[in-house]
Nucleic acid binder design. Sequence first.
DNA 1: AATGAATGAGAATTCATTCAT
DNA 2: GATGAATGAATTCTCATTCAT
Lengths: 195, 195, 195, 195
Amino acid sequence: MPKVSEEHRRARRQEILGAAARCFARAGFHRTTIQDIAVESGLSPGLVYRYFADKDAVITAIAAQWHEDQAGLLRADGAVGDLVPGYLDLLRSLAAPAERERVRLGVQIWAEALRAPEVEAVARAGVDAPREVVARLVRVAQDRGELPAGLPPDGLARVFIAIYQGLALQTAWDAGLDNDAYVRAVEGLVSLLTS
Amino acid sequence: MPKVSEEHRRARRQEILGAAARCFARAGFHRTTIQDIAVESGLSPGLVYRYFADKDAVITAIAAQWHEDQAGLLRADGAVGDLVPGYLDLLRSLAAPAERERVRLGVQIWAEALRAPEVEAVARAGVDAPREVVARLVRVAQDRGELPAGLPPDGLARVFIAIYQGLALQTAWDAGLDNDAYVRAVEGLVSLLTS
Amino acid sequence: MPKVSEEHRRARRQEILGAAARCFARAGFHRTTIQDIAVESGLSPGLVYRYFADKDAVITAIAAQWHEDQAGLLRADGAVGDLVPGYLDLLRSLAAPAERERVRLGVQIWAEALRAPEVEAVARAGVDAPREVVARLVRVAQDRGELPAGLPPDGLARVFIAIYQGLALQTAWDAGLDNDAYVRAVEGLVSLLTS
Amino acid sequence: MPKVSEEHRRARRQEILGAAARCFARAGFHRTTIQDIAVESGLSPGLVYRYFADKDAVITAIAAQWHEDQAGLLRADGAVGDLVPGYLDLLRSLAAPAERERVRLGVQIWAEALRAPEVEAVARAGVDAPREVVARLVRVAQDRGELPAGLPPDGLARVFIAIYQGLALQTAWDAGLDNDAYVRAVEGLVSLLTS
DNA sequence: AATGAATGAGAATTCATTCAT
DNA sequence: GATGAATGAATTCTCATTCAT
């Protein structure tokens, strides 16, 4: 397994996934054909099958990569105090035109997770991990008296995730929404919590 | 079987939509065939086409009905004080096993709205209306000093919708999540806001 | 079998055939549905089946009626000398706007005769009868020395039928063709023959 | 089986058209299914759609090819004197068993031209061109005194086309008709004209 | 007799997948 | 490895026909 070849394989795989992501974001998983992906990537339909067992495997890989990238965005190892600015930035980032594709793809993945167990597994893992991180941080903050003790950490973590998911969804539908007003509302809520 | 009453037509349409909703909730719009709907409803494939122009029309009708039902759930004409318990009940209702189908259907509709302009129109209308209602109530409450004046009403309305949407999504994935903890977290947030 | 009822049946049958003729002339046999005929006639699809065994029977009846009407137009019992003006009038009549439907229908029947034995039988009978009449008249005229003796009567009869059929076809395609020039050319040919 | 030559594509297209022509001649355009064409050609239904957008496109291509072949048969660049033998040969050729398919196909195309604008365009072009050629030759012959001056050239051209069309139609219905008698009758007419 | 709702077999078309080159 | 031609099962949709009312 020569290094160059492995390198090449990875690059090819990424080309295909990139093309697939663009197609899926545009037309959804089920209105996108392998042919569409081939055209978008400049490769051939047959080649897709040397990198993925079938179309579902492409979808699953897209979902996995999406959550992987998401995990990258969420990486935060500090205290709640540090987490908050990062979270608000995450909300803000959803408004970026460059994120449009990602956001649309995310919504499609959420729906697909309901039917494809592999996608569900990937999506669940992608949501559970940050939820547990947040819940842990909430507990720490509550111990330190920085957050009200009465709130269930897990529930609160889910609420923050929901606030992100809901914004993503609303942005997917209406890219022109007032992201700033949204973030300021969230900021207001958070400052009430931490004051 | 000639000259059937308008009543009968409405009932037939509902039979088909009911069967379609069950199929769609289970397998998604695109893995459900017209044949599946026919079998589920105990009717024939041809009959579906006497009530709907094509499969997309069935999907759009399902989306329209979903948002109509949703509007029924949201009906609230009082002040914010009255709205809150209704909102919390709405969040609680998502945990009901009977709502499982509705919740799953909702997520599919969100994704479908990204590709089908007719579904988008329906979904947008279904979200815009309650958002404006909430935003108006927030403004009223701010005028009365019942809510902090600094928060953007529209942003806050979107946040509350997001908290609903996110819970719906997370419930669709994991029906066993701790709905009560979620609602208590939201309750805590709201009481911070209104105190 | 009361007379009124029989009368009524005949009238109903004609209503259906009239509607079918209009539909067929417009859209062809195979793009016309029983539903189309029902709408055009103001009756119901089911009723068509009380007058005709199936759609093919409607087509055959249309073909039969077409050739019957045609026979009416051709009725001529005189000598060739009398036949010629009638023939030329027949050619002229093809240009009449009122004949448009008949002409279009005729072409469709010709094609249908190639696939439906019942239509073929009807069409063949409708063409053979006048052909034999003409051939007989040609023979008589040849005996009298009014027509050149060398020409095969049957061949000549077929040629005259062809001159009619070809004009019908060309008129079906292009209702604006110069019918008068055509008839004058035929007239010239005929006068060469009979002089 | 990648990157196939243009030659191969042309051949494949012809295979499909050949099979389609056989099916259409036998059963008509509308009783022939794509499946029938696939079986007749030994190919798959899907492949038909790599060469033709839909069934109507196959029909149009068949019509176009029919008229193209027809144009090949009509090619004549001489004077009327040269044209006549060619024309008579054309009439004779209709009796050849090998022409049976072509003749039947022609009649179907005539009918189809009444409903499919694309077929109409093709048919009209296929008839207009030879008509103008003949009309021009008639004019030349009249100038030279080889044909009676009084006859309208365009009308006469249409009559000759009608004599061809009518023979084709009658041959389609009855392959056993006396082609020789027909041709002798036409020959007689023509010699009267040119004498 | 008449209606038109309902059926379901059949046809066109698509597209994931294979495999010869 | 790559290609893209070829396949054929699956799906949508149509429409002739039936039959309960």
